[in-house]
Amino acid sequence: MNEYTGKVAVGGPADVRELPHATIAKLAVGPMSNNVYLIRCRSTGEAVLIDAADEPERVATLSTLGGTPAQTILTTHQHADHWQALAPTVAHTGARTLAGDADADAIPVPTDRRLAHGERLHVGALEFDVIGLRGHTPGSIALYYADPDGHGHLFTGDSLFPGGVGKTGNPADFESLLDDVQGRIFDVYPDETWFYPGHGNDSTLGAERPSVSQWRARGW
């Protein structure tokens, strides 16, 4: 097993995490240092790409890492920095597109499957919980993979970062997002869950849990 750190830089190589049943690759793309993820099922070779953010040639290369092009592309939310490379990546891979129902109409590539909180997504033999997180956008989606031989892996888009929740436009949206992050993530998944945000470095729920009340008190 290689030593995954989750620390990537625009223009640099992907960091790859080898799990018993899956591989997770993380790539940073410019100009806003977005993270793009590829999760591939070891037993079937099927893969899902999360956020075809920008730099379509590099995203296309990532989509084929370890096998055939990704068959599924999930856009975590409607903000443009997360889908600049979506159209060319779909053209390159022929992948089906997924997004949260409330955000799908704002993404200028047709969404093949609109996701809702509580659904399950299957990628080969891998199963993901679909988690709706309302506040950063109305239809932001996170995915949780429960590794049967290890800890969980959570892909949070721009809804949860080390140090706080994602940016919101008003106090009501902040309360909505923090309520969902607390009730649908921290109250459900264990401390050892490793999470992968839409920008920057990864963290664990255990590292962030003691600060949740402070986030609520400060209001961001």
Results as ranks from 00 to 15, higher is better:
residue 73 I to N: 02
residue 212 V to S: 00
residue 135 G to K: 12
residue 1 M to D: 15
residue 158 D to A: 02
residue 55 E to T: 02
residue 153 H to Y: 12
residue 6 G to M: 04
residue 154 L to I: 02
residue 128 F to E: 06
residue 78 Q to N: 15
residue 64 T to E: 14
residue 220 W to I: 09
residue 64 T to C: 15
residue 86 L to R: 07
residue 215 W to G: 09
residue 62 L to I: 04
residue 136 H to A: 14
residue 54 D to Y: 05
residue 25 A to S: 13
residue 18 E to A: 09
residue 102 A to M: 05
residue 209 R to N: 10
residue 33 S to T: 10
residue 121 L to V: 02
residue 141 I to Y: 02
residue 107 I to Q: 07
residue 69 P to Q: 10
residue 66 G to L: 11
residue 109 V to I: 15
residue 27 L to P: 06
residue 202 D to S: 11
residue 202 D to A: 06
residue 198 G to T: 06
residue 77 H to N: 14
residue 48 V to Q: 09
residue 151 H to C: 10
residue 111 T to L: 00
residue 23 T to E: 08
residue 52 A to Y: 01
residue 80 A to P: 13
residue 170 N to K: 12
residue 117 H to F: 03
residue 199 H to Q: 15
residue 33 S to N: 04
residue 210 P to E: 12
residue 23 T to D: 07
residue 165 V to M: 07
residue 189 Y to H: 00
residue 13 P to D: 04
residue 131 I to L: 06
residue 84 Q to Y: 12
residue 30 G to V: 07
residue 88 P to S: 01
residue 118 G to V: 10
residue 17 R to T: 07
residue 103 D to N: 10
residue 135 G to P: 00
residue 147 D to L: 07
residue 173 D to L: 13
residue 110 P to T: 05
residue 76 T to V: 15
residue 5 T to P: 13
residue 113 R to D: 15
residue 180 D to K: 07
